[in-house]
Design a binder for these strands. Structure first.
Lengths: 213, 213
DNA sequence: TCATGTGAAGAGCTTCACAGCA
DNA sequence: TGCTGTGAAGCTCTTCACATGA
């Protein structure tokens, strides 16, 4: 088991390295230095080395990093080893877009089902992903060993959906609903509040001191 | 003109305060202490006070903060004073979901148009927002004084779309495309890479040290 | 020789503890 | 008295500078 006490900031950057490495491997680049990676990504070379060094010594001095080896290490660290199964709760416009997005753009996760309470969308099929009645979440979570749920229901239904999700055994939620979710201890909620992100972005639209994210 | 050199972390939290204040005002709460706000939000009371104090002394010692006054101050600081006009570039599933999301869930921004290059979606109307040919972006940006674009096109078209956006005079981009965008200096890009966020979240699905976001 | 890996310094943000004021 | 506003301490993350090793 890998070390799970890494700084959050490092964990956020690992998928960035993963994507670049996938590209490099596709282009048959076998070795890359932290300096060259730095130019591809925009982080400093020191930061890249420090991030990777946190988990072990994956490079070769004088040479750089073997792209395939490093990719495999990062996959192992994040825990993407066997493709990860997720569910999307809420099959409205945003939920459907998120299902499509992950099916087409995210090679490391597998959406096994969508859930909703609205009979008019239950039974729909989105790129091979079936929208089911939320009542079936326990069955699906158990069958596919699902650990993560994406939440995209209307705000009024969010807390009820959370109860269903937690009861199924899932304890990591990627929340797109602009509401505070109440969860028991040990549950990890990551909020992607798009309205609030956009609002804080607007601050920079009139700022003088603009710099890259 | 308000101070624009505030820490990024503070700017990210301002919209959180704004939402809670809107709720409180709706419930006719006129005054609230940092301690009570802390319980609503989850940040510490000290942090809330420090965040607000960065921009001025908005509270009353011994009493707390006047909700309406504080809301107005935050609106002014972020720059949401007159409703902010934005455009959404890319009217695929995600783009359409983002238009709907902002129209229905974001009281402080106004989506004035969607843009695309695909004739089959040009002319569509999404909750009152028309999808136009990207060629019209300059005209719309000028007419509505647009400062921010949300980008949700296919990856292959991202850089071309960025050129159109920048030429129109917009210099803040909220990017949902999983690609590095090349922009000139002075342009602010905020990346919302949902695949990567989900991947880093998966790390926590097998971690022992789970705590709130 | 060249690029990694790493202690040390630095920067940025948060928490603490309390002075200041209604 | 009670809650804000704030210097100081503490913590986390980043940058620097260089020793280490292929």
């Amino acid at each position: 088991m890998v070390n799970k006490n890494a700084p959050k900031s490092v964990i956020r950057r690992l998928p960035v390295y993963l994507r670049i490495l996938d590209n490099l491997i596709r282009n048959e680049v076998e070795v890359i230095s932290s300096k060259d990676l730095s130019e591809e990504i925009g982080f400093t070379a020191e930061q890249i080395r420090k991030d990777l060094a946190f988990f072990g010594a994956f490079g070769t001095r004088g040479t750089g990093y073997n792209t395939s080896f490093l990719r495999d290490k990062i996959i192992e660290i994040i825990g993407l080893g066997e493709q990860t199964n997720i569910v999307v709760v809420g099959a409205g416009h945003l939920g459907i877009a998120l299902i499509r997005y992950n099916v087409t753009k995210n090679p490391y996760v597998n959406v096994v089902a969508g859930f909703d309470v609205d009979p008019s969308v239950i039974g729909e099929n989105i790129l091979g992903v079936e929208v089911m009645n939320i009542a079936r979440i326990n069955e699906i979570v158990e069958r596919y060993n699902v650990k993560v749920a994406v939440l995209a229901v209307p705000a009024e239904q969010a807390q009820a959906a959370v109860e269903n999700i937690l009861e199924s055994g899932i304890n990591v939620i990627f929340n797109f609903v602009p509401t505070k979710l109440y969860v028991k201890k040990g549950v990890y909620v990551h909020n992607a509040d798009l309205s609030m992100e956009l609002q804080s972005l607007i601050y920079y639209a009139t700022a003088e001191n603009i710099k890259d994210s």
